[in-house]
Design a protein around this nucleic acid. Structure first.
Lengths: 252, 252
DNA sequence: GCCTAGGTCCCGTGC
DNA sequence: GCACGGGGCCTAGGC
């Protein structure tokens, strides 16, 4: 853990050369100060002078964070190559990335803080409440959708993608189910339509049902579903972590 | 600009109370150290012990960054309320957000760095190469699409959304144009289909053309377009900033 | 407030 | 490598 407070440009460069440049894959670098940013690649952008925090991660990711908002105002993707130098008494950060081809330049005219440190983190996020969990819920209890529904396939591949759930209803009519973890959208309707069409063609079945299954279905989406003779179910979503990981809410 | 290196939990709490708690809307707080994270809201997640950088922005955004990847592993949205305390000799960060209702808890068992500082930044990003720029390009020179095309409307509202560009070809046939800044997708085809259908119904026109306009159109998408009697144009995208410095991505 | 659509989306997965 | 689809997407804009 190394830090430099209010360094001059040349002090900062020495600091970075000593603690970051030789082993960037093991060192996270933070640079806080007044800067401008010029980016060119998938798009092109300019950002005028202002105070920001720049983070260079151990995999080459570069983030430029303004004092507000969740998103970095500028960034470079994982795997970027960074390089520091001094020009006109300003500390310059140049980053390059191939594929997509992009580059970003940050020029600092005042530095508040530079830190270099190695972060060790081998933990993976355990997360519940995703689409896959809703799919599992339905598989383990298809009556959530309707009585006597028989699920026979998950992630069933068709021409233009893959169907979340496929089965047959009590009258042996094929049923295509498209699952969303939160809001159903117009786009989900199009997906469902396409899958129903593919199944009709594949199985030469005149009748195939399509059900959009989501915690919330806006009116516009319902109308669109009706227009295409499709159905929907608004199911409550349970957010449950694996048993051994589950904790009581009281811990909060 | 205030910093504390390797503080104890209680030293860190005093530091945060002095430099952050009283005016969080003016102070960005960084906390680096070994922590666990527990999140509950739109989903639920647990993150085991590891070294991370936590950033609390001046609008209440909270980011938890691991040493790799562009995305924060956990976060709280803009407008969250944060609170620090000590429990079992560990520094605890609790954040809450209403709408969506979410909360996150970070517990630190070792601290490497805490900093508090006020960042001032009133600059706005100037950016070029967005979809709107491709639309402008076509409006200023419709021959990019084809000869004698007459554009009459941008962002033309229809039932299910809004059409990027609408006009008439040399034979006075209505033309719907859907523009993408980068890759055309299956989903863009569905959008275009829907808009063409809406126009046919609105104007009681038997013939309406639909053109998908993007820098790249994958084969699968071309096939889908053909199936629905729709067209496409692969246009080179120019990335031009307001100062008229014209550049293409080929510079790389 | 709801909802739609774009994004330098990011990211994993399957081909 | 390309491409497709999900995301605690985020964010802006419209109503």
């Amino acid at each position: 853990m190394h830090t430099a407070l209010h360094p001059s440009a040349s002090d900062a460069l020495h600091f970075i050369n000593e603690y970051h440049t030789s082993k960037p894959e093991k060192t996270m670098l933070l640079v806080m100060g007044e800067c401008i940013v010029d980016y060119q690649g998938r798009a092109r952008s300019l950002l005028d002078w202002g105070e920001r925090l720049i983070m260079i991660k151990q995999d080459g990711t570069v983030l430029v964070h303004q004092p507000v908002m969740r998103e970095p105002v500028n960034w470079q993707p994982t795997g970027s190559i960074t390089e520091f130098k001094i020009k006109d008494e300003q500390l310059i950060l140049n980053c390059r990335h191939l594929h997509p081809a992009e580059k970003m330049r940050v020029a600092f005219r005042r530095l508040k803080l530079v830190t270099a440190t190695s972060l060790v983190d081998h933990a993976n996020l355990i997360i519940a409440g995703m689409e896959i969990d809703v799919v599992n819920q339905i598989v383990s209890d298809p009556t959530i959708i309707e009585e006597n529904l028989r699920i026979v396939k998950r992630e069933k591949p068709v021409k233009t993608g893959s169907i979340d759930l496929f089965g047959f209803d009590k009258n042996h009519v094929p049923v295509v189910i498209e699952v969303k973890r939160s809001l159903a959208t117009i786009s989900s309707v199009h997906q469902l339509r396409m899958y129903v069409k593919d199944i009709k063609k594949d199985r030469k079945e005149p009748k195939v049902r399509g059900i959009l299954c989501a915690p919330r279905v806006p009116d516009m989406v319902k109308k669109l579903l009706e227009e295409h003779n499709l159905e929907w179910r608004e199911v409550e979503r349970k957010v449950v972590l694996p048993d051994n990981r589950q904790r009581t809410l009281k811990e909060f």
